[in-house]
Design a protein around this nucleic acid. Structure first.
Length: 347
DNA sequence: AAAGCGGGGGG
DNA sequence: CCCCCAGCTTT
């Protein structure tokens, strides 16, 4: 039995029962695949259920607003996925009259769908013979065949895709792809892989050479930038001043409190002296810290975030600023750090 | 080819 | 603390 057949056999006996495995509707598969990009199944599952309930078809999705989609996406991260989904849903509604495509060539041209996702949707929904290569597949193949070429190098990606293509069971591509990924996720895990119960460990390079820890190889680069976010809490009765972020930075088009970003940590008395404060402060000012400094960790940035209560002006805050009732906050897409603070502070 | 983009979980 | 997660887009 070749590797594919062995893993399929393992999969059929050990697979998890996941909702998107009960459908061949390319729209539903698409929904699940985008949500699961760089996201664990357990984390994405509740979002999948909520999105499917609210948008049962791509036509429903296409009719949504960006605020609505981002609000539903809140907390999941990589928010461009949500914005791209709306763009794609509207395109599919127009171009394909609401019939979500299932062929690799059509899928790969859509925004938010790359090689992995096009292969996944086309194989799962139409049994097209395209091999998926995700983080799980990289790991399984690197270990089994002992490949130390970096998985995130250009050459490495080609090497692993070619290998996966050759391995694909063309008679049952959907089953093959599911098996490869499930095996990587459940058994051939990044840390502490379960080699003891692995059906293919006797043929596995990494097992035989005690190299599971060293494989796969990944070039690491990530440089982390420190940023200092001083958020202002400005209330007017039961209303709160909010600001809609623009493009070109994190959290595109999401809602936050008025923000003054500084080059370093800023004490209260220094914050008061900043020229940007004139945009927000009343004449008789009073500032009071209402939180400690939170460290909010993103992949490429560490945010040091503080919240300060300010007696605001009566108006004239500028473009993008608006007062909204506190009870309306649940309808705004908030970055997690803002959501957590407001939830804590307002209750 | 490299950088940018969230948030959470596990060791 | 580190790494990884059903990756993609932009530069």
């Amino acid at each position: 039995m070749d590797l594919s057949a062995q893993l399929i056999k393992w999969y059929q006996a050990n697979k998890r029962d996941l909702p998107w495995r009960h459908t061949t509707d390319p729209y539903v598969i698409w929904l699940s695949e985008i949500i699961l990009q760089q996201t664990r199944v357990e984390q994405g599952l509740p979002y999948f259920n909520r999105f499917l309930e609210k948008y049962p078809t791509v036509s429903h999705f296409a009719a949504a607003t960006e605020d609505e989609v981002l609000n539903l996406w809140q907390g999941l991260g990589y928010y461009s996925r949500g914005r791209n989904m709306l763009y794609t849903a509207r395109l599919v509604q127009e171009l394909y009259r609401g019939q979500f495509p299932s062929s690799y060539d059509q899928l790969i041209s859509l925004k938010g769908i790359g090689e992995y996702t096009a292969a996944a949707i086309s194989s799962f929904s139409a049994n097209e013979a395209k091999a998926v290569v995700d983080g799980n597949v990289y790991r399984v193949l690197a270990r089994y065949y002992g490949i130390d070429e970096p998985i995130n190098s250009t050459g490495g990606k080609k090497t692993f895709q070619s290998l996966a293509d050759g391995l694909l069971d063309k008679n049952r591509p959907a089953l093959h792809n599911q098996a490869m990924m499930e095996f990587g996720a459940m058994l051939c895990k990044p840390k502490n892989p379960a080699c003891g119960i692995c059906p293919v460990h006797l043929d596995c390079y990494a097992f035989k050479n005690n190299a599971t820890i060293a494989l796969p190889v990944k070039l690491k680069t990530v440089k982390i930038r420190k940023r200092y976010f001083n958020y202002l809490l400005i209330m007017r009765g039961d209303e709160i001043l909010m600001h809609k972020r623009g493009a070109g930075d994190i959290w595109t088009n999401m809602y936050q409190l008025p923000l003054i970003e500084t080059a370093g940590p800023t004490e209260l008395h220094n914050l008061m002296e900043l020229p940007q404060m004139q945009q927000f402060m009343a004449d008789n000012v009073s500032l009071s810290p209402v939180s400690q400094v939170y460290k909010h960790v993103l992949t490429h940035q560490h945010l040091y975030v503080s919240f300060t209560k300010v007696d605001g002006k009566t108006g004239g805050y500028g473009e993008g600023y608006f007062f909204t009732e506190v009870k309306n906050l649940k309808n705004l897409a908030l970055p997690q750090i803002i959501f957590l603070f407001l939830t804590k502070f307002l209750n």
